[in-house]
């Protein structure tokens, strides 16, 4: 089985907000979580953005577990949109993007987005003059 690393967006409803899901992912599924961003309040809904590394089989079972427990799990890349049509290909986002998720393809000099590399730091949202990058969390 291959080792994989995936970025996920996990949404908690108020009913499941107390559950120590990250612990379960480590202990029961041998996954390595790296939490990038989280906003979870007791008795309230919240979200967690993290990368999960481990064997593909464990990753799939871990995600199934989260879903069974009533959490919404989505690939992070589905939450971030870079609208190529709105983008002017200027490149203002590329030097401030710490993970090179937004980069310039050379020698063509056009902007490319790799959602898999995004760590949701929001720098591009501040840097883009035309609002081509949107984050929905």
């Amino acid at each position: 089985m291959a080792n994989i690393t995936k970025s996920v967006f996990v949404k908690f409803s108020p009913e499941v907000v107390d559950m120590p899901v990250v612990y379960r992912l480590v202990k029961d599924f041998r996954l390595i979580p790296n939490i990038i961003k989280a906003d979870i309040n007791p008795q309230n809904q919240g979200y967690l953005v993290m990368t999960l590394s481990g064997e593909e089989d464990d990753y799939c079972r871990g995600v199934d577990y989260l879903k069974e427990k009533g959490l919404e799990v989505e690939a992070l890349v589905d939450r971030i949109t870079w609208d190529e049509k709105t983008c002017t290909q200027c490149g203002a986002c590329t030097a401030v993007c710490p993970s090179s998720a937004l980069s310039i393809k050379r020698p063509q000099m056009n902007v490319e987005f790799d959602g898999g590399k995004c760590i949701v730091c929001n720098m591009c949202i501040q840097a883009c003059p035309v609002g081509a990058v949107k984050l929905d969390i």
Binding site: T88, C90, G91, A92, C93, A95, I104, M109, N110
Partner: peptide, 11 residues
Amino acid sequence: IRTAPLSSYTM
């Protein structure tokens, strides 16, 4: 250090 353009070369 990293560089980035603010004007669009492709445009």
